[in-house]
């Protein structure tokens, strides 16, 4: 009987899961930023400004969603930046202002993104190389191809294409709403489908997943393909926002896509965290940048704040680990 008394606490819901704790932390940080913002500028709290923040988080959130999935399996995708660059120049270059080309080009670009992601996944699975190296190599190749295609901004978009970025529904940007919905959908899929749980399982213990007959290889390839897909969507969104593609548009996303992921509580070793945390992380970063703009802090110095946020997020995480 003793074992039941040792382990068998009555079945009550535990007060705080790690995910909720993380959401609360991000919420508190946001509240602090909002409070400061409200103090320094009355425009900060106006709906128009908040809608602006909502819109500005779109691209980073979208790349980071794909990154979240690879990180959940214990991997990482460092080809996202170059992939976005390549796909953005292809999108605007091939459409070149011609409305009839929009659908076929976008379809092709999405397909290409998925294909590149699949190649990454196959490299990780078949060559048994660290994902960091595979995707780094892939990133170099893609960047080279992008530069071969063009070395300056290229092409253009037809009228109306920019509504992906600038269109509004009820005052909120279309792209932002779409990304929000995509996140919710992915979160539900991760929680409520066998494949979703397998992604967590593979990140939690790859060896166990193999022994238990989970399709580890398929899951691994899938997450990199998904990362490619979300990179492609980001590229299209960026073309809509800027009006044309540039061969270095995506460069900064390679590393910055990891920030919302870890700020949102997904652990780099895999298996723990929630993509909704990533979304909140992206909103938090956008809100922070917005505040710093109000404070007239030069863009470059805003980086310091971003770095400090990463450190804070990670340090809090470690604290929780120790208590457990």
């Amino acid at each position: 009987m003793s074992s039941t008394t040792i382990s068998g606490k009555p079945a009550v819901r535990r007060p705080l899961t790690p995910a909720t704790a993380r959401f609360l932390m991000i919420g508190m940080l946001m509240a602090i930023i909002v409070a400061i913002g409200a103090l320094v500028a009355d425009r900060f709290l106006r709906p128009a400004n908040l809608a602006n923040v909502f819109e500005q988080a779109t691209d980073l959130a979208l790349v980071a969603l794909g990154q979240s999935l690879t990180v959940l399996t214990g991997g990482i995708d460092l080809s996202v930046g170059s992939l976005i660059s390549l796909l953005s120049v292809l999108t605007s270059g091939l459409i070149d202002g011609n409305g009839a080309m929009v659908l076929p080009v976008c379809a092709g670009v999405i397909l290409l993104g998925v294909l590149v992601g699949t190649l990454n996944g196959c490299g990780v699975v078949l060559l048994k190389i660290h994902p960091l190296i595979v995707t780094l190599g892939m990133g170099a190749v893609l960047q080279g191809v992008a530069l071969l295609y063009t070395r300056s901004p290229v092409g253009g978009i037809p009228d109306g294409f920019d509504s992906i970025a600038y269109g509004r529904i009820g005052g909120l940007s279309v792209g932002g709403i779409a990304v929000l919905l995509i996140f919710v959908a992915v979160a539900v899929l991760l929680r409520r489908t066998a494949t979703g749980r397998a992604i967590y399982a593979v990140g939690d213990d790859r060896h166990a997943a193999t022994l238990l007959g989970l399709k580890v290889r398929r899951v691994t390839i899938l997450v990199y393909a998904a990362s490619g897909l979300f990179s492609a969507l980001t590229a299209i969104y960026l073309v809509a926002r800027f009006g044309s593609g540039q061969p270095y548009t995506g460069a900064d996303y390679t590393l910055s896509s990891v920030t919302p992921v870890v700020v949102g509580g997904i652990v780099l070793s895999g298996g723990r965290g929630n993509v909704l945390g990533t979304l909140l992380g992206a909103y938090l970063l956008a809100l922070l940048n917005n505040l710093l703009n109000f404070l007239h802090v030069p863009t470059q110095i805003q980086l310091v704040a971003e770095g400090l946020i990463i450190m804070a997020a990670v340090a809090v995480h470690v604290e929780r680990e120790k208590r457990a």
């Binding site: 990482i76 590393l255 990891v258 920030t259 870890v262 780099l268 070793s269 470059q300 110095i301 805003q302 980086l303 310091v304 704040a305 971003e306 770095g307 400090l308 990463i310 450190m311 990670v314 340090a315 470690v318």
Partner: peptide, 16 residues
């Protein structure tokens, strides 16, 4: 902290 993150954070701070 995982080395990737720790050094990413210092990289960004130093840049700023």
């Amino acid at each position: 902290v995982s080395p990737f993150l720790a050094t990413l954070a210092t990289m960004i701070v130093l840049q700023g």
